[in-house]
């Protein structure tokens, strides 16, 4: 299996140094890396799960608006980025696999490589001060 493009590798190396949860996907949305802070959200370790198909990791937490209504996938920043290759940002609630409810902000950006090629996307989860446990 060929190696990832250098732009993807560098994003992983950066994510590995950050204390905020970072998810990296391929162009199809399959989760190819998540860092240690993201492991807390998923309740699993990357070393144990390895890469995860979009169908699997997409069910690890439930996104909701302030009224508790589930947000459809197409409204989520990462899904938007994968669709249009532009950055997106939003703030909403997520219910994690452990049942914790957290209000988070998500910034998603596309990885556009040197040859102007869309290589994948990064989603950064910023915790807000409105967390409920």
């Amino acid at each position: 299996m060929p190696s990832y493009e250098i732009e993807i590798i560098l994003n992983r190396q950066l994510a590995d140094c950050l204390s905020i949860p970072v998810f990296i996907t391929d162009t199809q949305g399959n989760l190819i890396f998540y860092n240690e802070p993201a492991e807390e959200l998923l309740g699993q370790r990357f070393e144990e799960t390895g890469e995860m198909p979009v169908e699997e990791w997409g069910t690890k937490f439930i996104p909701m608006d302030d009224n508790g209504t589930i947000i459809p996938p197409e409204k989520l920043p990462l899904v938007k980025t994968l669709r249009d290759c532009y950055p997106h940002h939003d703030t909403f609630w997520i219910k994690s696999i452990k049942g914790n409810k957290e209000k988070i902000s998500v910034t998603a950006y596309p990885i556009i490589g040197r040859e102007n090629k869309f290589l994948g996307a990064v989603a950064i989860f910023w915790k807000t001060k409105y967390n409920e446990n």
Binding site: P2, S3, I9, D16, C17
Partner: peptide, 18 residues
Amino acid sequence: ALGRHGIIKDTRWTSGFD
């Protein structure tokens, strides 16, 4: 080896591997 843990042993993540 640029990064927190040096060279990533998974060859898909090793710069220059191919």
